[in-house]
């Protein structure tokens, strides 16, 4: 065992990269759940986004267009879920699970011609003097734009939910669909919009895996990231800040266990591989169990079907 191969600066830098896909997916799901919709299809939307983004990027040679394609792909799959649950009033849990299975299948189908292909690289953005700061510059300020986009999205969603009228309406719809309907808000439309946003974010998260983190296409490459994103939303008490903590925690543990594997820690590889999942959930359970305020509780309508009976 040789722990000296682990470089802390590199660890933190790769932590931010490893966390970004989960962070993006979790933020999308957060908005979706705030509107009262439980979409368990995050994994499916992520992997669909991963292959759509990969395919578009390879065909056009532009990673940026790839990410747009990924968001679109995730949103299209989410639209399927939206039609099932909001128009046809299907059960959300069952529809979400089906969406995951469907996403895994269709991504493998689309991805048949893309195995072993290299995607166009996404450059790091140059933050000028910031990137030149010793250690800190390398850790924080020398990433690609998606990492910073994820962080900005945390702040944007926090502000959206706390300060904007649209955010208030979204929370109201998730809190009591009947009351929102009685006040004249378009519950179904708002929910569909939230579901589509969730799908687009999941798609971005998936594309980050296939275009930057790995970067190549393999079947089932999300490997449970969508599920951990779902868990992070719940144990993060539906707050963007805590979701960020959860995502970075999971990303950090993933990177650490990979480093420990490389350092040949005398622990079975399987135990190391599962440790991020276990530890993230344990830590988040402790955080969420500590305080149970009204703001920390689940949206009251989560997973419930709304049918306007005027």
């Amino acid at each position: 065992m040789d722990l000296s191969v682990i470089n802390p600066a590199l660890l933190i830098a790769s932590l931010m990269v490893a966390s970004t896909p989960i962070l993006l997916a979790a933020l999308g799901e957060l908005i979706c759940e705030k509107s009262g919709v439980l979409n368990l299809g995050v994994e499916g939307m992520m992997i669909t986004g991963a292959i759509c983004g990969f395919a578009v990027a390879v065909e056009t040679g532009s990673p940026l267009l790839g990410f747009l394609g990924a968001a679109l792909g995730g949103a299209v799959l989410a639209l399927l879920f939206a039609v099932l649950t909001q128009v046809l009033l299907a059960n959300q849990v069952a529809s979400g699970l089906a969406l995951t299975l469907f996403g895994l299948g269709i991504s493998a189908l689309i991805g048949q011609g893309y195995r072993g292909v290299k995607p166009p690289p996404t450059g790091r953005i140059d933050l000028g003097p910031l990137s030149d700061i010793p250690v800190l510059g390398r850790v924080l300020f020398s990433h690609d734009w998606v990492v910073y986009f994820g962080l900005a999205l945390v702040v944007a969603i926090w502000a959206f939910l706390k300060f904007s009228r649209a955010g208030l309406v979204l929370r109201a719809v998730g809190e009591s669909a009947e009351a929102a309907h009685a006040l004249g808000y378009k519950v179904v439309r708002i929910r569909i919009a939230a579901i589509l946003f969730g799908g687009a974010c999941s798609g971005l998260g998936g594309a980050y895996l296939s275009l930057i983190r790995v970067p190549q296409w393999t079947d089932g490459m999300t490997a449970g990231a969508g599920w951990i994103a779902l868990a992070i939303v719940v144990f993060g008490s539906w707050r963007p800040g805590r979701v960020l903590v959860g995502a970075y925690l999971f990303g950090g543990l993933t990177v650490l266990q990979l480093n420990l594997q490389a350092a040949q820690l005398p622990v079975p590889v399987e135990v190391l591989s599962m440790s991020p999942f276990v530890l993230t959930i344990v830590v988040l359970v402790i955080i969420s169990a500590r305080r149970r305020g009204a703001s920390g509780a689940a949206p009251a309508m989560l997973g419930r079907i709304f049918h306007a009976s005027s």
Binding site: R171, E175, S176, A179, A180, A182, L183, A294, S295
Partner: peptide, 10 residues
């Protein structure tokens, strides 16, 4: 309204 018009968590 008689009911259904307030949001408890807000």
């Amino acid at each position: 309204f008689q009911h259904f018009s307030l949001f408890d968590a807000l």
